[in-house]
Simulated assay, not measured.
Amino acid sequence: MNLALWIVAGLLAALALFSGATKVLLPKSKLDESTDWTADSSTGFVRSLGVLEILAAAGLTLPAALDIAPAMVPITAACWMLLMIGGMVTHARYGHYKNVALCLVLLAVAAFVAWGRFSPESFTI
């Protein structure tokens, strides 16, 4: 179970890092070409989401890997779940139901990590 939680958290962190880096590094005009919601959002908001996603990537892996405040891993996973709820609402508003489904899957993966690290496979054992 511990290995499965590490793998899932690592994959979720990689996805969050990629998504966050895209939002932070690409010009907003490039993002506007590929997604509707960024055109209706301010540059600061899009960049802030990107920074939050990068921080989530760090929070899902580094605290446990460095053995510094490993309790931050399930807390970060719970915060990621909130971010995915916001993503589902936003994508549903624009009719992007495939993205809503993707956010739902990512929410479920984060729920698995949060559940696993809060109780059965806690790092504090």
Rank of each mutant, 00 (worst) to 15 (best):
V109D: 10
A56Q: 00
L3C: 03
L3T: 13
P74I: 03
C79W: 03
R117V: 06
D67S: 15
V105K: 10
T61M: 13
M72E: 06
D67Y: 15
S42E: 08
W37F: 08
G86C: 10
G59P: 02
G116P: 05
T35M: 09
A71C: 10
T35K: 02
V109G: 04
L60H: 04
G116N: 08
P120Y: 04
G59N: 01
V105F: 12
G20H: 01
L66P: 10
G87K: 08
S34Q: 14
F45W: 12
Y97W: 15
L102N: 11
P27L: 09
A65K: 15
W80Q: 02
L52R: 01
A9H: 05
I68A: 13
A78S: 06
V46R: 02
T22R: 13
P120H: 06
S119V: 07
Y94C: 06
V51Q: 11
S122E: 01
E53H: 00
P74M: 08
L3S: 08
G10D: 05
L5D: 00
V24C: 13
L26C: 11
A64D: 02
T38K: 01
V89G: 07
A56I: 02
D36E: 15
T43M: 09
S48P: 01
S48D: 00
V51C: 10
L102G: 06
A111N: 14
G10P: 03
A78H: 00
